[in-house]
């Protein structure tokens, strides 16, 4: 079973998207761990480690993505978790999204994205190696 941590970094409390994604992934048969709000990058890395996550989904609408997401990526690397797939969702301008992908984010989902698209993406990328 694919294990996904859905994380809300920073101070932003907008959790509508995070909760919808969490529910959709659970309904699609994944094991979902939702961190709750106001997580620091370190806390998110720790959760990914503890939960043996295959993927981390970061939901952020505060505009702080260029500060917080790279810190999460660095933290995962420092823990030897570079295999954990990182996806980001939120109001992310295209230029920033391109930069985040360059830094190692597997995908950035912006407003209007379908949950089924996210489910498919995770299934494909987190499929067990045959």
């Amino acid at each position: 079973m694919i294990r996904v941590v859905i994380a809300k970094p920073g101070l932003d409390g907008h959790d509508r998207g995070a909760k919808i994604i969490a529910r959709a992934l659970r309904d699609a048969g994944m094991e979902v761990i939702y961190t709750g709000l106001h997580q620091t990058p370190d806390q998110i890395v720790e959760t990914a480690l503890q939960e043996d996550a295959d993927a981390v989904g970061i939901s952020i609408l505060s505009g702080a993505h260029m500060t917080l997401v790279p810190r999460i990526l660095d933290g995962l690397k420092a823990q030897g978790l570079e295999d954990v797939l990182v996806v980001v969702g939120g109001t992310i301008p295209e230029d920033d999204a391109a930069e985040l992908r360059e830094l190692g984010v597997a995908a950035v989902f912006t407003p209007g994205a379908h949950t089924s698209e996210i489910v498919e993406f995770l299934r494909e990328k987190c499929a067990p190696v045959a």
Binding site: G10, S62, A64
Partner: peptide, 10 residues
Amino acid sequence: PRSLGEVGRE
């Protein structure tokens, strides 16, 4: 420290 990256953003 918790304000990092968020100052003046929203």
